[in-house]
Nucleic acid binder design. Structure first.
Lengths: 95, 95
DNA sequence: ATAGAATGGTTTATAAAATAAACCTATTTA
DNA sequence: TAAATAGGTTTATTTTATAAACCATTCTAT
């Protein structure tokens, strides 16, 4: 029952946590939508999405809508699991 | 109802959050006790306690127990308020 | 047709944080 | 009296987060 288990540093980040939270509720979202909802800059978001993808928490698909690039993100099962574990750990800190 | 309000960066840190959490439950604790409970190094803890004190979230008292230095910490009202606000905001990310 | 603004991002640079390593002073113990 | 321990602080290093600059393409207005 060790009180304070380490918090997954990939999730313990305001923007990445917001992204994951958002994707949990919608299951799929476009770059610009995430950007608006999280009120982040494109640069910051781009970097953080990359990290989440490299961790296997997100699947990112690049395609085109008409002639413009389109980046679509969805959470993976691994991402869901990691998020749940993070929340469980976090509860020991905030309750 | 903007979903993701900024999370107080002073609290959104694993070690500082653990310290605050601990102090909320005990109301007063010694440096070494906090160090053990949070499993942190003395150097890291010293730095983080400093930040929390400078923010006005903790009151830190330096004295002696017998001949040895003794650092005692307690949370302030400002600290309690900040913690509560942090938790409220955080809930929007994790629920 | 072409200059300028907008879209949808990525890459690079900078600032801030977290952490560890080294250090310091005094005190006990062998 | 030398070495280990206590109780920390200070400094250096590594990671992160964030912003700024940039890039390619596509619209829009002239």
């Amino acid at each position: 029952m060790s009180e304070f288990k380490p918090l997954d540093p990939l999730l313990h980040s305001q923007l990445r946590l917001a992204v994951m939270s958002l994707l949990l509720s919608v299951e799929e979202a476009e770059f610009t939508f995430i950007k608006e909802k999280t009120e982040s800059t494109a640069g910051n978001l781009s970097v953080q999405l990359d990290k989440l993808e490299k961790a296997g928490y997100l699947a990112i698909e690049k395609s085109f809508r008409g002639k413009r690039p389109l980046t679509t993100c969805k959470i993976t099962q691994k991402g869901v699991k990691a998020f749940e574990a993070y929340v469980e750990n976090l509860k020991n800190y905030i309750s």
